[in-house]
Amino acid sequence: MTLPVVEGWNPLGGRPARSDDEIFELLTAAVFQARFRPAVVRARWPAIRQAFAGFALAAVAAWPDACLDELLAAEGMIRNPKKIRASLRNARDLQARSRQFGSVAAYLQSLGDDPEARVSDIDTWAHYIGAPSIRWFVRALAGGGAE
């Protein structure tokens, strides 16, 4: 049985994530691409990247939900409050795992090599994203998930 995976565009160009910031960028891409055409997200990605401080995880994780209006108003942003709020919360959750495990990569490694085990764990905390999009994220971490 093949489990559903969303289509997506990998902002890292199909190479594996090398840092907590890049893992956060991929997770944010998964959130924004859920129920959107990847081409729309790809076209807006430079503006989204700028609005989210280049996906600097530590910086974004410190932002309160109150900065939602500023992000919604950012030039070129996809103006979906649920996706933006989820990205802020996901940054906080990733930062917490980075602190607990030493890095987000170490947290992900602690989940083992089974992609579905990773999907199941991430699905317990990730915001505004379902299992098909999480599967894309897990593939993209290793350099897959390109259009």
Rank of each mutant, 00 (worst) to 15 (best):
I23F: 03
E25N: 10
L26R: 07
L26A: 09
L27P: 12
L27Q: 08
T28C: 12
T28P: 05
V31E: 04
F32N: 07
A34L: 10
A34G: 06
R35P: 00
F36T: 13
R37P: 09
P38Y: 12
A39F: 01
V41A: 14
V41C: 11
V41H: 11
A43W: 05
R44I: 08
W45D: 15
P46Q: 09
A47E: 12
Q50V: 13
A51K: 12
F55E: 06
F55Q: 07
L57G: 10
A58Y: 04
A58Q: 10
A58K: 13
A58F: 00
A58G: 15
A59G: 14
V60N: 11
A61Y: 09
A62D: 14
W63D: 11
W63M: 15
W63S: 15
P64V: 08
D69P: 00
D69A: 15
D69V: 08
D69R: 15
E70Y: 01
E70H: 11
E70M: 09
L71N: 12
A74N: 11
M77C: 12
M77Y: 04
I78M: 04
R79K: 14
R79W: 01
K82G: 02
K82Y: 07
K82A: 14
K83W: 03
R85N: 03
A86N: 06
S87E: 02
L88H: 12
L88W: 09
R89V: 14
R89A: 13
R89M: 05
N90D: 14
D93T: 07
D93H: 14
L94I: 09
L94F: 05
Q95M: 11
A96R: 13
Q100K: 08
F101H: 14
V104S: 00
V104K: 04
V104T: 05
A105Y: 00
A105I: 04
Y107H: 11
Y107F: 15
L108R: 05
Q109A: 12
Q109I: 05
S110T: 08
S110K: 03
G112L: 07
G112H: 06
D113W: 04
D114N: 09
P115K: 03
E116G: 02
R118N: 01
V119H: 01
S120V: 01
D121V: 11
D121I: 07
I122E: 00
I122H: 04
D123K: 05
D123T: 08
D123I: 02
W125P: 00
Y128H: 14
I129S: 01
I129W: 02
I129R: 01
I129T: 02
G130D: 08
G130K: 11
P132V: 07
L141V: 06
A142G: 14
